[in-house]
Design a binder for these strands. Structure first.
Lengths: 189, 189
DNA sequence: CTGTGCATGTAAGGAGTTACATGATTCG
DNA sequence: CGAATCATGTAACTCCTTACATGCACAG
């Protein structure tokens, strides 16, 4: 599960409340990794239990003469354990091609916390996409060579969408590779 | 939920058992709509209850002298109610951009059961993708104009992935439109 | 003082994942 | 006869979605 890790990145970029996250999410990581505010609050609670993050504002500040003041805003920040977990996750290989594109989240993490050496994982993914593209090309040669009726034309269009997707992904991934070598450009930190 | 509808299409193309579906799925619709065999059996059960599909082989053929013969293979076929439901779903507009790309499943349905007039829905989706692309272009102009450090380069790469995806989707969608008009080729029903 | 936005949550249910269970058939 | 594959399922759990609930702050 990587909603947690997406949240860790957002919190590293800027410590925030759940509400803030819910809105900022829509405008950045949310374009490729969606999460509702209920998900966000739940995961924040879990990560706090795990010791990955902590909030400045405590739950409640009670008593006095009946004046119960609820901590109006809980601003979470990432603890070292959360940072470590994020690094661990970024470098852990995923198996197969996922439709949620975790790699995009991992790249965002790499941007946020310095070069982690994602070139290896990126290389693996490129190979997987190449294999998938080859599969599609095979189907294309086998099933869509002659003249096609409407039904076949639509099915061919679906295949073409797959081919196009893989091709554009590969062009992108290959152009990105040089940026990802840990020795590539100035390493900071 | 559209796993059910993906299964309906597979069953229309060829009546099958759950096991058959699980395997055929991997090799066709499965490329863009994954489902495990547990999901498949569950959804087949539900759709049978709903009267969308029915199996030839009944549950059990008991008795005799203790010889209980379990229907070795349950071959499901689509009933008229299932066909209607599929058409209803194909023509129902989706809201927003989904990452699961239901439109691909809908196109497969259109290929299987004649031209349903998906051009309208496709037009809507094209407009949505155009709007998203414009959003991305706006961010590009605003945040990634000058010279960029490594961190910004990676974030820019993420944005470029989004731009590339939308552009390739749009090229594909526009080229597909002519095929989808209900008047394009013979309309049935 | 009423509505709108801020801010955090609970509850319920649907969908997807992983692990396990069971029995039949087929092939060497 | 033993192993692999066919074929169908149950159970438990996680994840995601939708709806609802609550209370504060501020502006008109």
């Amino acid at each position: 599960m990587s909603t947690q890790h997406a949240l860790l990145i957002s919190l590293i970029e800027k410590p925030s409340s759940g509400y803030d996250l819910a809105r900022r999410f829509d405008k950045s990581i949310g374009y490729f990794w969606h999460a509702t505010h209920q998900q966000i609050y739940r995961e924040l609670g879990r990560m706090a239990e795990l010791g990955w993050i902590a909030s400045d504002e405590p739950e409640v500040t009670v008593d006095g003469d009946g004046a119960e003041k609820k901590g109006r805003k809980k601003v979470y920040r990432v603890l070292p354990a959360g940072h470590d977990e994020l690094v661990r996750w970024v470098l852990a290989p995923v198996q197969g091609l996922d439709q949620r594109e975790e790699i995009l989240v991992k790249l965002r993490a790499d941007a946020a916390i310095g070069p982690l050496g994602l070139d290896k994982e990126m290389g693996r993914l490129i190979a997987l996409h190449e294999a998938r593209l080859e599969t599609y090309r095979g189907i294309e040669r086998k099933d869509f060579s002659g003249t096609l009726d409407r039904r076949q034309q639509i099915q061919y269009a679906l295949l073409q969408r797959g081919i196009q997707f893989q091709e554009s992904w590969l062009a992108w991934g290959r152009s990105l590779l040089p940026l990802l070598t840990a020795t590539g450009s100035g390493v900071k930190d």
